[in-house]
Amino acid sequence: MKGLTLDAALARLLIVVLMALTLLPFLSMFSAALAPSGSYPPGLAWPADPQWANFAKAFEVAKMDELLLSSLLIVVGTVPLSVLFATMAGYGLAKFDKGRGRWFYLVFVLGLTLPFEAVITPLYYEIKALGLLNTRFAIILPLIGLYMPFGVYWMRTHFVNTPKELSEAAQIDGASEWKQFWLVHVPLARPAIMSLAILQFLWTWNQFLLPVVLVQDPLQRTMAGALGAFQGQWGTDIPLLCAGALLILAPTIAIFLIFQRQFVAALLQGAVKG
């Protein structure tokens, strides 16, 4: 670390330590997944005869292809509508920041403090009364509502920081409020919208509680929600269970690697503008 100050060297060392602590559980799961089926891996130890077929077996017995389709259907049904509603509501609250608009905004902010566990029981009976229990709509519709507080807060933060001169110039050109929103503000908000979509994709894909409580059929849950059923069936086969868990994690890791710049931008935008 020649040429680095002590603070910079300590910062880099801390990053390396945190990376090691983050990767250690994944490496332990990966080594356990390669152990012989039915054995009990001792921990972070590379097996003498890696069983790569465990991944193929886990993919087959867990019916990962059907789970992947189910997760995609839930994501497609949840994320676009949630982002659309949050963008429109965030723009409206940013434009009407005074009076009633501020009270509406406070309601959404209070929604940020509401955990999923606090509403799961009344939500169950509400979904049952609507006749949607054990369907994918039992996951999609609640998630759209539960994502609203954060989504509205996120998008309002962006629109509040947009220069008012843009709207004034559009008004002079004769643009209606609707055209100002779609033709001026939405294109400028594309980074914020993309960041919100990525975050909600990850949250939806990794959603565990709602699918387990509201849907009995594992093949209509998210991949993370189906892990409970997979664990109940193969809980004694640690290598197969670890292989299945890694297969479920693979899509989220791939999405993060593909959109890592947008993901980091999402965190930085929230830190700077929040």
Rank of each mutant, 00 (worst) to 15 (best):
I253E: 02
F26V: 14
L10E: 02
L241Y: 02
L110G: 15
F108G: 04
L34T: 08
F55K: 01
Q269M: 13
V75S: 09
V212E: 06
G131Y: 08
L247Q: 07
A129L: 13
P80D: 02
F96T: 07
M19I: 14
V264Q: 11
G77R: 04
F201M: 12
I127H: 02
A32H: 08
A94Y: 01
L73Y: 12
P218K: 08
T222S: 03
F116K: 12
L24Q: 11
V107L: 15
L68S: 13
T222R: 02
L143P: 01
V184M: 06
L219T: 13
L268F: 09
M1W: 13
P142A: 05
K57G: 03
F96S: 11
A138N: 01
A62H: 10
V61L: 07
I193D: 00
L106W: 13
A45H: 11
V272K: 13
L227F: 14
N206H: 06
M19A: 15
Y91C: 00
A169F: 04
A271T: 09
L130A: 14
A224K: 03
P149A: 09
A56N: 05
A169Q: 06
A94E: 00
T135G: 05
F263C: 03
P122G: 04
L23Y: 05
L110M: 15
L267R: 08
D237S: 04
L10V: 11
L93P: 04
V61N: 06
F104L: 12
K63M: 14
G90F: 02
L23E: 06
V215E: 02
L219G: 08
V186E: 01
L257N: 07
I198R: 03
L72A: 15
